[in-house]
Design a protein around this nucleic acid. Structure first.
Lengths: 340, 340
DNA sequence: GATTAGCAGTCGATCCTACCGAGTGCCAGC
DNA sequence: GCTGGCACTCGGTAGGATCGACTGCTAATC
């Protein structure tokens, strides 16, 4: 463990580096409050911190930069010490946002990702809660042109699942008629209402072979194709990534990852599962994001199922600020979702 | 108008600049096929082309760069002359893509945007056809928890419109019961089926005041909140923007615009309305995109309503290639949508 | 023994200069 | 009207001097 003075010095380096993005020298550290020592002493301490892996020098005769380990210490010490606060105007922004928020869930989540991005000046990600636990309120099968049909299910949490499917054909090669579709639709409604998408049960037999075939097709379509990683991910302020790094190649790489929603979802879920709130640099396993840190929080709505919000920025992001923003938004969004 | 030699020289400059991104000198132009003249002659011609606004010199003693006007001439002369072709492997990619494509419309459009982006190595945009002309196949009202309800409409083109709404309350302050919702739902189904979203008609009177109130609310919700600029825009390969420019500031600016879906949609629609296929630099009115060109094409599905696809890249994009890619994809996508 | 002032040394960043080469404009001759 | 040739321009690169923000170390101090 680090003694008080080393900790204070490390904190000072991290804070200044976050602010200026320049290597921090011993002289600067002495000017930080919380450090009472001459620059010579600070130099000695800093060389120890470097030996122990908390700091690095980009080159001799330059100041020091925090390593991932250095940031990690900073963030952990922050946790037990009272995180940052949003400034009043930001609080006000959050407040008015959530009092005014209304309309579709998706729309609100998308706007939330933009809010979070604005607050932190980093890219924000919002993932809708999985609706596996939500119960089905209503199902309907509709025949479209030709052989395609559509099954639409409304869930208790207000989301709508839809799947296209290929209608079974009758013996004469024509797709099943409206009557069969209607029969299947009503049958499904009574069978599925109250169930979850995860537990659809088995297709009830009706005695009519055509209807039974259609029912089986529908259940198959509904059970398959979990597109939960599609469409339910909202990325806000991706353009801010361009400010985070001055190497275009890095920007390109990170934006590329952001386009792979699956990776993003997996990453955030994984972090939450590991109980982490902050992942610094290489701590999350995603190599192309090695220069990034991630701050996440679960969003607990009424149903017990949790969504996820997070922000993605350079390792030298303002962690107190970011933690505060994510915490506040996650909390208020959860409350808002609870209300419906 | 430009005489043949000037045109050939201009074409050569544009082609080489597109390839190398370096100012093109007279020497290089003489090496281009289609130009039979000494470098001195080319120099004279080029200085005329500069005077007339087709070329510029970044500085004295440097080669020439095409202006927007220069690109415009290039693109126009291309049109009457046989556009570019996709190479065989790209053709194959397009072909297998569309034979394998299946599932939700949204999903397919999203994938299409990625396909187009891969083909051109630029950012691609796909806009779903507006479903104002599509007829309603099925409507349903569902009560969720509390006072919120949801109306879901399935359209003939396979898309699903949904709106949340606030259920009317009865005299005792409780929200209307399931019976009323069910009544409204069936009434709506018969009233709206076959109509378009643009023409919902007026709420039919049922005699039951509660049902009538609910019907009015539903129709209001359905008619309002055209979110056609939301959710129906798919941007693929935004990260490729980072390769297009080496100034981070430009990347930031363009990505910022891409996040404002409304602007993007308006831009593309506007171009199509003006009958343009290619907008070069400042030709479209969007100042932050002054360094970009846009290539668009309508996607004509069966219904007559048209979607839009386009790509967005630096003005020095490979126009023949881009035009070919956009043309092919638009055509095949249209055919695919026609099939349903 | 820990801390500190002072000093020599390092090395990126900046500025200057010289120089090279790609490219131009122009002129004289074909 | 075209072209070869020539003088000139100017960005980009390389080398060298200087500056300044650092460091590490040592010797003196508390």
């Amino acid at each position: 463990m680090l003694d008080d003075r080393k900790a204070a010095i490390l904190r000072a380096v991290v804070e200044e580096y976050i602010e200026t993005a320049q290597p921090v020298g011993s002289q600067h550290v002495t000017r930080a409050r919380g450090v009472q020592a001459s620059s010579a002493t600070v130099r000695n301490e800093m060389s120890v911190l470097e030996r122990d892996g908390y700091l690095v020098q980009p080159h001799t005769s330059a100041g020091r930069i925090p390593t991932d380990k250095g940031y990690r210490f900073f963030v952990d010490s922050l946790h037990g010490w009272g995180a940052g606060q949003l400034n009043p105007s930001q609080r006000a922004e959050v407040k008015t946002f959530f009092t005014r928020a209304h309309g579709e869930l998706e729309h609100m989540l998308s706007e939330t990702s933009q809010l979070l991005s604005r607050l932190t000046d980093h890219t924000a990600v919002v993932i809708a809660p999985p609706h596996e636990a939500a119960t089905i309120r209503s199902v309907q099968v509709v025949a479209l042109g030709g052989r395609t049909g559509l099954v639409v299910a409304v869930l208790s949490n207000g989301s709508v699942e839809k799947r296209t499917l290929e209608l079974p054909v009758r013996d004469d090669g024509e797709p099943v008629g409206d009557a069969v579709v209607a029969a299947a639709s009503t049958r499904l409604a009574s069978h599925l209402t109250g169930r979850t998408v995860a537990d659809l049960g088995t297709a009830p037999a009706t005695g009519d072979a055509a209807v039974d075939a259609l029912l089986a097709t529908v259940l198959l379509a509904l059970s398959g194709g979990h597109d939960e990683e599609e469409g339910s991910v909202f990325v806000g302020g991706a353009s801010r990534m361009a400010n985070a790094f001055d190497a275009v190649a890095t920007v390109r790489r990170v934006l590329g990852i952001l386009e792979e929603q699956f990776v993003v979802v997996t990453l955030l879920r994984d972090l939450l599962d590991r109980g982490l709130t902050v992942a610094i640099g290489a701590e999350h396993g995603v190599t192309p994001l090695a220069e990034c840190s991630v701050v996440v929080a679960p969003v607990r709505g009424g149903s017990g199922e949790a969504g996820t919000i997070g922000i993605l920025g350079p390792t030298r992001m303002n962690y107190p600020q970011a933690l505060a923003a994510v915490a506040v938004v996650s909390q208020r969004l959860g409350r808002r979702m609870e209300e419906g």
